[in-house]
Amino acid sequence: MIAALARPQVGFRVLGALYLLLAAPPLRTSLEATMSGHMLVQIPLLAAIGFVACRLLPVARQERLLDAGGGAVPYVVLVVFASTWWMLPRALDDALASPLVEAAKFISLPLLVGLPLALAWRRLGPIGRGFVWTNFISMLAVLGWLYIAAPVRVCNSYLVDQQESAGWLMVKLALLLFAGWLASLFVGGGGNPALSTAEQVAPPPAPSRDCGPERN
């Protein structure tokens, strides 16, 4: 009993430490030094922290939050808006130029992307999950392609060759995710993408794996 209570707390501490690590200058500046590090490592990690933190909450509390927000759909729409925002080249530049925008990024990614996605995910059926996956994958691919093909530098803070390498990484990642998702449709049968089945057993990233099983 006591051990079970302690586990989410350990999880929260690990997440908090990771969050502080990401926010502290050494890691923050090194990740933000390249476009790929900024877009494909820092931003997803911030969202993932919110996702896992939500899974560490008691199930009843997650259900209450979900009901208070009107179910899965409003949360998914919120996730789409908030995540698209941080894909705008302008938002990346602004985050680097203004501490206020940087703070907004660190707050909004866990709270408006990770957390609502984790809340909504448990109540989404195969079609809802399919929508989230295809929406995300297509956005990643289109944006990646734009970065590769754009005749102009989209971010004033990044070099053109960084833009191109970030673009290629995004296209590759989109293909990889698409392949993984398709495979999970065939293998998993029920339309549960790899991540969702994994997360029903344990939240995705490793730090909190120990407190997964009791949660779902």
Binding site: V77, W85, R90, D93, A97, V152, V154
Partner: peptide, 23 residues
């Protein structure tokens, strides 16, 4: 509500869907 607020935020943040880059 979320859609309206989100669209409004994008409208405001991109100068009426015209400026997607800092330049």
């Amino acid at each position: 509500l979320v859609t309206v607020l989100g669209t409004g935020a994008f409208w405001w943040g991109t100068d009426g869907f015209s400026a997607f880059t800092a330049e």
